[in-house]
Write a protein that binds this DNA or RNA. Sequence first.
DNA 1: CAATAGATCATCT
DNA 2: GATGATCTATTGC
Length: 205
Amino acid sequence: MRIAASTVTLPKTTRLKREFYNREPIRVARECLGKVLVHGETAGRIVEVEAYLGQDDRAAHAWSGVTKRTEVLFGPPGHAYIYFIYGMYECLNFVAEPEGRAGAVLIRALEPLAGIEQMRKRRPAAKRVEDLASGPGKLTQAMGITRRLNGCDLVTGELEVRAFNGEAKPEIAVTPRIGITHCADWPLRFLIRGNKFVSGKPIHI
DNA sequence: CAATAGATCATCT
DNA sequence: GATGATCTATTGC
């Protein structure tokens, strides 16, 4: 794929439909790998995600039930759940499962594909392209995703998720989730094996 | 390299 | 009032 200063040529892609998200979060998480997140002129390939299992998962925000913050999680699938954390950062999730259940997928890292100059402006701390979106707080910054987009419909709204037509399934590595204290040993983090744009070190096992 | 402190505030107890 | 699905800069080996 070619990258230019302000415009990009991506191979043909198709936007994901509602049914993609209307499944159990582990399934959605694994299938998100290799898909493309698009916002404005920026785009990135999803290379790392985590599954959150809703009310049965002590580490999930949905664990404490429906609140002002979590109502999007309990809503219909295919919407963005974006929350503010550590007084400074915002994290992007895709809402999975039917309305009433609160499974979600945390997007943890992207391989930048388009709008890289804009990403660099938004993230002056990043020295290398590999640092632009290699973490949940970094990728929202790089792509200009804020709480303004909480509840945004991924199927029809300004935030898009697309699949490369005919792309082979990537090889997936599995680890425990990062940065949580509860259920810290559950194997719910999924990455593209060997990819250089993941958070932390690449995993090739 | 690895370990750690500090930034900073919405949310829930 | 404490905590948190994080990141960066700095310190020390």
